[in-house]
Design a protein around this nucleic acid. Structure first.
Length: 570
RNA sequence: CAGGGUGUAGCGCAGCUUGGUAGCGCACGUGCCUUGGGCGCACGAGGUCGUGAGUUCGAAUCUCACCACCCUGACCA
């Protein structure tokens, strides 16, 4: 491809709307243009990247035995009413009416449609297992779209759905999809991690997320370097401390702590570490009465875990300041279990503490030397906090580290959640009607592009992994308009490289070198060959990899061979 | 949805306090010049100042309403 016949639209300055680096670079490089909030046009350069990602996803899905189909984006309400999600899904579901005032939605996902396809088609165990997928635009009316295509409302997703006669078959396909996803992200050249995940709203049991590792990622991942344990922090178990609770030594004393409202205030005021404090959080209970949660001062409450407690109302709701004031006679910031009559749940770490500091249920007062059992009744104990770096790994093989990631894939065992409500039945070998087992497997294709940039960039722009770069090689002539030698050499090189199967972008604009270099670096082309009169005097050209700081001088006659070896090698 | 912020040329911004008919940089067009890191000079094109209503002789500027976009939203115990 020649720049003169392509469409580059690079910007020197990033539009003000872009906050995160991948969004800024995608706009500056002209990969995408925003149409409206959370809705983007994929410009020609960006589309090349997207197509390369799609191609890899498609190849690996096909290789894993999945079969591609394409379902409609617009879906009738009847199917969603049947599954119960027309009511459940809420405002994220974009609802439409046709000219007859019939209800439709723009599909945010396709369990209903694929289930309808399969129940019409599949009658026998002989037709199972079946794994169907598509690569298609979804629309989810996010509360707050952000970060460009990373959290867009309209986005491209690869979604697959598998159907099985039994759980063993589901397990097998689930494993195949796990391996398939690992191959996809490996081929894309991304640093990623598969983590055990919460099943969230979709439900079902087994679930793994695939995260591209990046410091700016929205999700925190706990992993164990000494084993293969990895889990989303929402799920990662904080195991009980190995040491039992020490005996109480200190006496309970009321301390005047004027103006202290936060754990940080408290530590500064008493000059003690946060590990010796306990914070009390009040949430609404299932029975309508508040529940007091106790978490060590330096720990964070985990809302996903908390939401699974039977005593706690779903979704987890923090009690209002008014309710707290009425019940405790103190403001949030001075609360504690002493004298509290309602339900108390302590985190496992708190249950193993002695002589700690806690709010006294009176503004500006705390207790020091507080002890469970002695000063207030033994509370219920549960895992309700986020793990932190250094916590013991739940598999008992070392300690956890925390890193951040961007979720780009998610696989679920749905089991029979949809198949039973949607009547996905088949006849088994004995002629008995049974409900199918189901799995579903998603990849955010557009999000992968943003995540890749988030993970791979520098101050000059994007550094695309080779597999997803819009072009493999930038061919930059210097002074092409002036030097016939440069012009002829670069044209011949362009022909030879293209013939050798290399995806070349020839910058034939006859711009000044700085312009060409800056553009090719910004758009992230992983390799560059420069042809100038200076080098040609010695029969040489210049090669430089995007991520590397220095250029190499290569003999002109070896150029094609060298470039090929670099592209196929390392 | 709640809180905060911003809407002026394709992009980044100034002008608004104190009302008088819009400007800068980049990008774009033409010409000259230049060719190993966003070069220089000259000329030029491009704006219903988000929309509507109001105040005023006069509104980008003041008032009101609306719209769009961006940021933050358990971590507070």
């Amino acid at each position: 491809m020649r720049v003169s016949r392509f469409y580059l639209s690079t910007l020197k300055e990033a539009p003000a709307e872009a906050e995160v680096v991948s969004h800024q670079l995608m706009l500056r490089a002209g990969l995408v243009k925003r149409l409206t909030s959370g809705v983007y046009t994929w410009m020609p350069l960006g589309l090349r990247v997207l197509r390369k990602v799609e191609a890899i996803v498609r190849e690996e899905m096909n290789a894993s035995g999945a079969i591609e189909l394409l379902m409609p984006a617009v879906q009738p309400a009847e199917l969603w009413q049947e599954s119960g999600r027309w009511e459940q899904y809420g405002p994220e579901l974009l609802r439409l009416k046709d000219r007859h005032q019939r209800d439709f939605c723009f599909g945010p996902t396709h369990e209903e449609v694929v289930s309808d396809v399969v129940r019409r088609e599949v009658k026998s165990y002989r037709q199972l297992p079946l794994n169907l997928y598509q690569i298609q635009a979804k629309f989810r009316d996010e509360i707050r779209p952000r970060f460009g295509v990373m959290r867009a409302r309209e986005f491209i997703m690869k979604d697959a759905y598998s159907f099985h006669a039994d759980k063993a078959s589901l397990d097998e396909t689930y494993r195949e999809m796990y391996d398939c996803y690992s191959r996809i992200f490996t081929r894309l050249g991304l640093k990623f991690r598969a983590v055990a995940a919460d099943t969230g709203a979709i439900g079902g049991t087994g679930s793994h997320e695939f995260h591209v590792l990046a410091d700016s990622g929205e999700d925190a991942i706990a992993y164990c370097p000494a084993s293969d344990y990895a889990a989303n922090i929402e799920l990662a178990e904080a195991v009980a401390p190995a040491a039992p609770r020490p005996a109480a030594r200190a006496a309970l004393e009321r301390a005047h702590t004027p103006g202290v409202r936060t754990i940080a205030d408290l530590c500064a005021f008493l000059k003690i570490p946060a590990q010796r404090t306990v914070k009390a959080v009040v949430v609404d209970g299932t029975d309508g009465r508040p529940v007091l949660l106790m978490v060590r001062g330096d720990h964070e409450l985990n809302l996903v875990k908390t939401g699974k407690l039977e005593q706690v109302k779903k979704p987890v709701t923090f009690s209002s300041t008014e309710a707290i004031r009425a019940l405790f006679g103190a403001e949030p910031g001075s609360l504690g279990p002493l004298g509290f009559k309602g339900k108390v749940i302590a985190d496992r770490a708190v249950a193993a503490m002695a002589d700690f500091i806690i709010g006294a249920n009176q503004n500006d007062y705390h207790y020091t030397g507080a002890n469970v059992g002695r000063d207030f009744p033994e509370p219920a104990v549960a895992d309700i906090r986020n793990v932190v770096a250094g916590d013991a790994s739940p598999d008992g093989k070392g300690v956890l580290e925390i890193c951040r990631g961007i979720e780009v894939g998610h696989i679920f065992q749905l089991r029979t959640q949809y198949s039973s409500t949607m009547n996905l039945n088949f006849l088994d070998e004995s002629g008995t009607s049974r409900v199918m087992e189901m799995g579903c497997y998603g990849i955010g294709v557009t999000r992968i592009v943003a995540a890749a940039i988030e993970q791979n960039h520098d101050e000059r722009g994007i550094i695309f992994p080779r597999a997803m770069a819009p072009f493999e090689l930038a061919l930059v002539p210097i002074g092409m308009g002036k030097s016939a030698q440069v012009r002829e050499t670069v044209e011949r090189l362009y022909r030879d490289l293209t013939t050798a199967g290399i995806d070349v972008l020839l910058d034939d604009r006859d711009e000044r070198p700085g312009v060409a270099f800056a553009d090719m670096e910004l758009i992230g082309i992983p390799q560059r060959v420069v042809v100038g009169e200076r080098g040609l005097k010695n029969g040489s050209i210049e090669y430089q990899a995007r991520g590397s700081l220095k250029a190499e001088t290569i003999a002109l006659q070896d150029a094609v061979k060298y470039v090929k070896s670099r592209i196929c090698g390392d």
